[in-house]
């Protein structure tokens, strides 16, 4: 059973998640079909920057986050930004969109200059998130859990972060049981996506390193 406090926690996180989305003028630009390679790169950079800003605004509203050590807050955001962005992008791409939109977005990503060996696991991840048909509150909580991962580099108060993450895991577990009574493995499947995210993060670091050396 979900307690009253847990309900309030879910509501606070969900409200923050819904309130902080990438601005529409940015997403609109993504759907324009004519663009050069340079414009594409600049726009994807703008979107990524916007995603980080949105992520920070969302995170500030996660109950308990601002009570963590200031430098730990930065370490957590720095360590999770890429994973949170993959998660948010996966959710955007798995939404039902007017016909042709998904293709335009995919085309942009494919023309971004990243290597095929990175793109394949990324699109596979997007697909596997889409197959889960997560509700908005589950998405918000899974993102929260990703952000509150205690073993990111430079996190000092490991235990304080872990306590906060445990609170969120407990809520998500209960929510999964309630919302997916026919799928006892649903919570485990969600956690499995976090492992996939870690792998993508690892590929991403490798890709950036190869970009820099080239």
């Amino acid at each position: 059973e979900i307690t009253k406090e847990q309900r309030a926690l879910i509501k606070a996180i969900l409200d923050a998640y819904n309130r902080h989305q990438i601005p529409q003028d940015v997403t609109k630009k993504l759907l324009q079909e004519q663009y050069s390679a340079e414009e594409n790169f600049l726009l994807l950079t703008e979107v990524a920057t916007s995603q980080v800003q949105v992520l920070v605004e969302f995170t500030k509203n996660i109950p308990g986050f601002l009570s963590l050590d200031r430098e730990d807050q930065i370490a957590l955001l720095k360590g999770s930004a890429v994973e949170a962005m993959f998660l948010r992008s996966a959710q955007v791409l798995s939404k039902k969109m007017p016909s042709g939109y998904t293709e335009v977005l995919e085309e942009r990503i494919r023309k971004s200059g990243m290597s095929e060996e990175f793109m394949t696991p990324m699109f596979n991840f997007y697909k596997s998130i889409g197959e889960l048909h997560m509700t908005q509150d589950e998405q918000a909580l899974l993102t929260t859990i990703t952000i509150l991962t205690p073993d990111r580099p430079y996190v000092k108060s490991h235990e304080a972060v872990e306590r906060l993450q445990e609170t969120m895991l407990d809520v998500l577990r209960k929510l999964c049981v309630l919302q997916h009574p026919q799928e006892p493995q649903y919570f485990a499947r969600l956690l499995g996506r976090l492992t996939e995210l870690r792998t993508l993060h690892h590929y991403h670091v490798e890709m950036l390193t190869s970009w820099k050396t080239n």
Binding site: A48, T49, Q51, V52, Q53, V56, E57, K60, Q73, I74, L77, K78, A81, V82, M85, H204, V205, M207, L208
Partner: peptide, 21 residues
């Protein structure tokens, strides 16, 4: 944003609430 310095700068700025400068 994979560039750690750029990423950290965006995060610090956003944490302090300064979006537009």
């Amino acid at each position: 944003p994979g560039n750690s310095i750029g990423l950290e700068a965006i995060i610090r700025k956003a944490l302090m609430g300064k979006y537009d400068d």
